[in-house]
């Protein structure tokens, strides 16, 4: 869970957040490229979550498996939800929605790492 994959996800999300908020500041709606970038980020998150779930079956369960599972579901659903909302809002505010989502995603990944590091005996 603490591997380079989660670091990559966090960095990608932060870079995208800066990009989307810049687009919003310039009064641009999410472009095709912006939406595709969010899809790529979502795919990265899917890989991250699959690796985390595989880790669950590989021993080393977090003490709080229920919370961990809840966060995994939220994390995997988060970017796709923002994508749907952003597509509904083809104005600058659609870019803000993507930007906010990309700011929240690192928090979710960090929380996942935190929960995963408290492994049950």
């Amino acid at each position: 869970m603490n591997g380079p994959l989660s670091v990559a996800t966090i960095i990608a999300a932060l870079v995208l957040a800066a990009w989307y908020l810049l687009r919003a500041a310039l009064d641009r709606a999410p472009s095709r490229f912006d939406l595709l970038a969010a899809v790529v980020l979502a795919a990265l998150v899917v890989v991250l979550v699959v690796v985390a779930v595989a880790g669950l079956f590989d021993g080393g369960r977090p003490a709080d498996t229920g919370t961990f599972a809840g966060y995994l579901i939220t994390t995997i659903a988060f970017v796709p939800t923002a994508l749907v909302l952003a597509k509904m809002e083809p104005t600058r505010w659609g870019s803000v929605i993507l930007g906010v989502a990309c700011l929240v995603l690192p928090v979710l990944v960090l929380r996942l790492q935190q929960i995963a590091s408290v492994t049950g005996a």
Partner: peptide, 8 residues
């Protein structure tokens, strides 16, 4: 739009 962001 702003309201939707607030709601999110």
């Amino acid at each position: 739009g702003l309201g939707r962001v607030l709601l999110l």
